[in-house]
Design a protein around this nucleic acid. Structure first.
Length: 306
RNA sequence: GGUCGAGUAGCUCAGUCGGCAGAGCACACGCCUGAAAAGCGUGGGGUCACCGGAUCGACGCCGGUCUCGACCA
């Protein structure tokens, strides 16, 4: 029999990894599936707050270090890797616990989506037109081809408009015909728990963590990456792009640190906003100790589902 | 003590000739199916340091007070 996976989610620095490790301590069959868009890259460890090798040898971790930082990585790649991991865990009669910070990646597992293909030559043409005609013109074209898709995005959101047109023109099938979209939340067999902090407290934890990353060698890690090529998707990781700016002489180290903290805080809010739309998530309010406060709730859910 | 400069949104600062108080960032809220730690949108915020004066009308002009900075002594 397959036991429903448990999901522990929350913004960055909310302590979800600690909670997951604590749960795994109690239950030997737990295997963790990390749902994180940046921890998939090798050679990016400190800045992504990747679990330590000690934790990884104590408890099986999946979906870490999937590609080198020179490679692009997308939702589709993640969905494929994660579903393989889940199948493997089921075969071993383990129990999957998803530790999730990237909302879209999590949805690709909980609500498997049909992601349309890619048409690079169509896209290149559209991107050229964005520069010459502007996003609004392409939005009008999208509205004439696929009104439902156009209605879902701002006329100024060039990136999403290009993507929708790429699919509709290149694939010959309306972008909006690929599933209901991310704002539909049907019943699922995943038990989702969210860690929720008061904003000021989480902000403090984020600042502390960034400073700790610097103390444990983030600058050297980024310097090593900067020696070679790095993919478009990997280079935009928080803490890295700011350090690249510093290493290129565009800002002081202190400025890079402050920018990283601010942007990480904003990212955490964006994560909250994404997750709180999902009515299927049960929220655990944390105000001091994530493990002590969340573990009892998860233990109750664990017993009920067995 | 003297001279000069500054004081306007949480922060950094614009504000022309006296005529409805502005920007960027921050913050809040929302959207987004192959970049998602990415991308896009919305808007809540003001004792214009303080007191007085002239004026139909002052952030602006006049007088005074306070605070900060630079220089002089």
């Amino acid at each position: 029999m397959i036991i429903d996976p448990l999901v522990i989610l929350g913004p960055t620095a909310s302590g979800k990894s600690d909670v997951a490790m604590a749960l795994a301590d109690v239950h030997d069959e737990v295997e963790l599936v990390v749902v994180d868009a940046m921890q998939v890259y090798r050679r990016m460890n400190i800045g992504t707050a990747k679990p330590s090798m000690a934790d990884r040898s104590a408890v099986p971790h999946h979906c870490l270090d999937l590609v080198d930082a020179t490679h692009d990585f997308t939702v589709t790649d993640f969905a494929a890797a994660a579903s393989q991991s889940l199948l493997g865990i089921a075969d071993r009669h383990g129990r999957a616990v998803l530790v999730a910070g990237t909302g879209l990646y999590l949805r690709s597992i909980t609500d498997p989506m049909e992601v349309p293909g890619r048409w690079p030559e169509v896209r290149a043409d559209l991107e050229a037109r964005i520069d010459s005609e502007g996003a609004a013109a392409l939005h009008r074209q999208l509205a004439s081809l696929d009104l439902a898709a156009a209605a879902k995005m701002e006329p100024s959101n060039a990136r999403r408009i290009v993507r929708a047109l790429e699919v509709t023109i290149g694939g010959g099938r309306l972008f909006s015909s690929f599933g209901p979209g991310v704002d539909t939340y049907p019943p699922i067999r995943f038990d989702q728990f969210g860690l929720r902090w008061p904003r000021p407290e989480l902000a403090r934890r984020i600042a502390d963590r960034v400073h700790r990353m610097i103390e444990t060698g983030l600058v050297a890690e980024v310097e090593a990456l900067a020696h070679g090529p790095i993919s478009r998707t990997a280079r935009q990781a928080l803490g890295y792009k700011e350090m690249f700016d510093h290493l290129d002489g565009r800002c002081s180290l202190d400025a890079a640190i402050e920018t990283t903290i601010t942007r990480t805080r904003q990212f955490a809010v964006r994560q909250e906003r994404w997750f709180r739309r999902d009515p299927r998530i049960r929220w655990i309010d944390i105000d001091n100790d994530p493990v002590a406060e969340a573990l009892p709730v998860l233990e109750r859910a664990w017993r009920n589902s067995n």
